[in-house]
């Protein structure tokens, strides 16, 4: 067992330091790069918090939709193949809901400020 603090706590501490202490001192192109870097750390924090629950729910939906048991990436490969060859489409019960939920879960980690995501959250 690894000891405390957790990865999330460590990353948050670093991101907060960069945000609060370093950002005011940096100008020009490096200020832009610093912002990208802080965004990356924030993204990792969100992924650490949300990934497990999201992946488990996605795998459960895929198993039901496809009627097979495999790793998450294999399930996604199987679904991709079925969509590509037309076996499954938007008329297939559960497909649209699955794609929407999976995509919303991705955006919650990747870009929670993306305008389309915020609009869809309100639905």
């Amino acid at each position: 067992m690894q000891d405390e603090p957790t990865p999330t706590e460590l990353i948050k501490a670093v991101a907060d330091f960069l945000r609060n202490e370093i950002t005011p001192a940096i100008k020009g192109h490096n200020a832009f790069k610093l912002r990208v870097g802080i965004n990356a750390l924030d993204l990792v924090t969100r992924q650490l918090a949300l990934e497990q629950g999201g992946d488990a729910a996605e795998a459960a939906r895929l198993k039901k939709l496809l009627g097979l048991d495999a790793s998450l990436i294999e399930l996604n490969r199987a679904l991709s193949e079925k969509i590509a060859n037309g076996e499954v489409d938007l008329q297939t019960p559960g497909l649209a809901e699955h794609l929407w939920q999976t995509t919303m879960d991705k955006l919650a980690v990747d870009q929670p400020n993306y305008a389309s995501y915020k609009r869809e959250l309100g639905k």
């Binding site: 993204l43 995509t103 919303m104 991705k106 955006l107 990747d110 870009q111 993306y114 389309s116 995501y117 869809e120």
Partner: peptide
């Protein structure tokens, strides 16, 4: 990590 933006669109 921005390709998911195009997925929601």
């Amino acid at each position: 990590r921005r390709s998911s933006e195009t997925e929601i669109d």
